[in-house]
């Protein structure tokens, strides 16, 4: 096994996992809700992107902005019409409702798209790579994926820490009641947070569809990766989530390199080790 190559490939894969995770972190960070259907929405995003590519012939990368807008609006509507009714009080209703959504999405996709594996083709870019010398090479597409994840982390950091909207997000997360005394309309704010989360889901969905062959039932795996990346990184900063995704990606890639059956397991083991040693996550902001 070439360690350097494995770590590089793992880091690049981690970019995708970070994109999976950041949407989840937005919703958890603002509303303390877990969207159990998160992974299924990523899969849905891939199918939607595939549909748009097939219908318009656009390059998949050009579909991303369109998918972000569609998903963002959908996320806002979903939060305002359904998920807001589950907030406050018990932690169970949001879990049950989004679990229900997960089942609905999977079954609708099975019914309409069949269980056959699909993928989004990039033309020549799928296999293009940049040689690094010494037999090492970096794929262009994985590099785009990691670069996008970094840009998303930067944008989210700016939105959450440098804008009025982000300040209100953090305030509502701290104390919803007091924030409402300041004039924050929390139901609308929650809609914005979910819109942001779903825009990130759309990016993740398109990239996932290019990177993997996908079927309607993959969602729960992606939810798990997203969840693991968030926990490894720790709540409170999107840099942490990015790092969590990268660590998970490296762990899985090393696992796969050791034995094709160990990849996913290696990721889970690193996740469990972090839970054991540092339950708040490696990069958690001190409380």
């Amino acid at each position: 096994m070439n360690w350097l190559d494995t770590v590089i490939q793992g880091t690049l894969l981690g970019g995708l996992y970070a994109l999976f995770a950041m949407g989840l972190a937005v919703i958890y960070g603002v509303m303390k809700q877990i969207n159990i259907a998160h992974g299924d929405f990523i899969v849905l995003g891939a199918y939607v992107a595939l549909g748009i590519v097939a219908a318009t012939g656009l390059h998949p990368f050009l579909v991303i902005p369109l998918a972000m807008i569609v998903f963002g609006l959908f996320g806002y509507a979903l939060q305002r019409s359904v998920l807001n009714r589950t907030i406050g009080g018990d932690i169970l209703p949001p879990l049950v409702v989004t679990y229900g959504l997960s089942i609905v999405i999977e079954n609708v996709l099975q019914q309409t798209q069949s269980a056959d594996p699909k993928s989004i083709k990039l033309g020549g870019l799928d296999t293009a790579s940049i040689p690094l010398g010494g037999g090492l090479a970096i794929g262009v597409f994985p590099l785009v994926m990691l670069g996008t994840a970094i840009v998303v982390a930067i944008v989210l950091e700016i939105v959450f820490n440098r804008t009025r909207l982000g300040m209100a997000f953090r305030a509502v997360s701290d104390d919803r009641e007091i924030a409402s005394l300041m004039g924050v309309r929390d139901n609308r704010l929650f809609g914005y947070a979910t819109a942001i989360s779903f825009a990130v889901i759309a990016i993740a969905g398109v990239f996932m569809g290019i990177k993997f062959t996908f079927t309607p039932t993959l969602g729960p795996n992606f939810l798990l990766y997203a969840f693991e990346a968030v926990v490894i990184g720790g709540m409170g900063s999107f840099w942490g989530t990015l790092a969590g995704g990268v660590i998970l990606g490296i762990a899985q890639t090393i696992g796969f390199a050791l034995n094709p059956g160990w990849g996913i397991l290696a990721g889970h083991l690193v996740f469990l080790a972090v839970l054991l040693v540092r339950p708040t996550g490696i990069f958690a902001r001190a409380a």
Partner: peptide, 11 residues
């Protein structure tokens, strides 16, 4: 008081 703990004084 119930200040927002994740916000700075100015925020």
């Amino acid at each position: 008081r119930r200040l927002f703990p994740s916000l700075t004084v100015e925020e």
